[in-house]
Amino acid sequence: MSRTEVPSRTASTTPGTGSRRRAKLGANAALVLVGVCFVVPLLWLVLAAVDPQASYQAKVPETPSLDNFRAVLTPELLFRPLANSFLLSAGTAAVNLLAAVLAAYPLSRYQSRFNKPFLYTVLFGTSLPVTAIMVPVYGLFVQLQLLDSMAATIFFMATTTLPMAIWMTKNFMDSVPLELEEAAWIDGASNLVALRTIVLPLMRQGLGVVLIFVFIQAWGNFFVPFILLLSTGKQPASVSIFSFFGQHGAVAYGQLAAFSILYSVPVLVLYALVSRGMGNSFALSGAMKG
């Protein structure tokens, strides 16, 4: 890499140092403009949250305070919906991980005529527009009397992310060399023991990515619980924030913003964790590479 770079570098710097620098300056300016455009819509969220007299205008509050946060920090408004969100997301992630690891193991370890068709069918499953199947899913849940059931909602949400989880898990598992397991087999370990003691520990980073990926998706999901969970006691924050907005929308802009921020924090932390530890491209390549 460096060897090919050195001569071409010198060749191109001699005539065009100035134009290079200008290009860099132009690129920087254009990017800063784009960045500002992307940040501006979020300004309101931050400013209104600390403004007791917030409206839809983004303005620096005259008397900034944490009153909005104090107002939403009640069990009924915040803690129970957040606990429900956590239950839904953690349950979804757990079901996903378990099913995906079990499915990925034979797919990754044994050659079979079944593997390819299955994997491509699963991939095809990722392309179903989830919002489109919510109407039939609602009908199905009514017939099976599963409406307003937390467990059924968890299994449904897990299924919608399962195709992606299987692909990612299989790709991560493929990168664990088979030789290590064969050594364990010779020592008399069963498949299950080898999976638990050798394969899974070696791919724990990958499993972490899958887990967080699924958790973030479930945490942010609005439409599915909005349709399938009816009683307020079971609704996650994404749904309760929507009804909160509907009921108090005319007055409580600041509280809406404060609630939004508190609800977003866990996802931001998890995302930072994944991208800092492993880099976006790594997490993406697990999902994207065929």
Binding site: P41, G220, F245
Partner: peptide, 15 residues
């Protein structure tokens, strides 16, 4: 750019 994408969709929609 990523911030708008990572936020829960309902929060992004409110913003």
């Amino acid at each position: 750019v990523v911030a708008a994408w990572v936020l829960p969709e309902i929060v992004a929609a409110f913003a």
